[in-house]
Amino acid sequence: MHHVTLDQWSRRQSPLHRLDPRSKIVALLVLLVVVGTANRQVAWLCGGLWVLLGATALIAHLPLRAMLIRACVVLPFTGVFAAVSWLAGDPGRGAALVMKSYVSAFAVLILVSTTALPALLRGFERLGAPRFLLMVAQFLYRYLFVISEEAQHMRKAAQARGASAGGLAGGLAGNAERFSAAAGALAVLFARSYHRAEQIHRAMLSRSFPGYFRPLMELHYHPADLLFVMLGVLLPVLLRVWIERLS
């Protein structure tokens, strides 16, 4: 049984974990807009926000170092573009790209590691996102690991039948054979996923599925949420206004 690190983090206890997901989503969107629209003094702004986010992560009892490393996921992508910008004679823009994308990813990471995914999606639903789409997303996440494990088993089985590490059916077979073998494997995975969905649906019907997920917990808006939203909106905005005033 696999558990993603994020799932473990999002089940911890802290003042931030207890907040209503809606208030965290609103604060995140404000912060992202503040970062996304910035084009002057980006280094100072990102530095200030980074300190702010780091403090938030500490309040939420999250492992700061592991989170900083995890947010580096964006760097390989943005790094390539920063290098291209550098080559095109605009190193400032390249550096701004890296900083903005890193701070944004760190902020999103704090949201998802303080909110369990069902609660998060329910927050989005209450903020007006289409329910059907969110239900599909939730099913997707639930079966992501099941289907991926199935794909891994199939890959292992293919290797046991003599496929080399390079492809699905390797050895003496040419590229064309290996290609069609991989296509066949994907088709089998497709068929198995399809039938699994049918079985899931029958199981859901037998438990009288009403057509939507019954929420196990209701969202409650507390005074702490109001305080958090006010801080989450005011601090980044004022920080940016202050930095742009100074320059």
Binding site: L140, R142, Y194
Partner: peptide
């Protein structure tokens, strides 16, 4: 479930 599992 169908759309979710096909996404997975």
């Amino acid at each position: 479930p169908l759309l979710g599992v096909m996404g997975a």
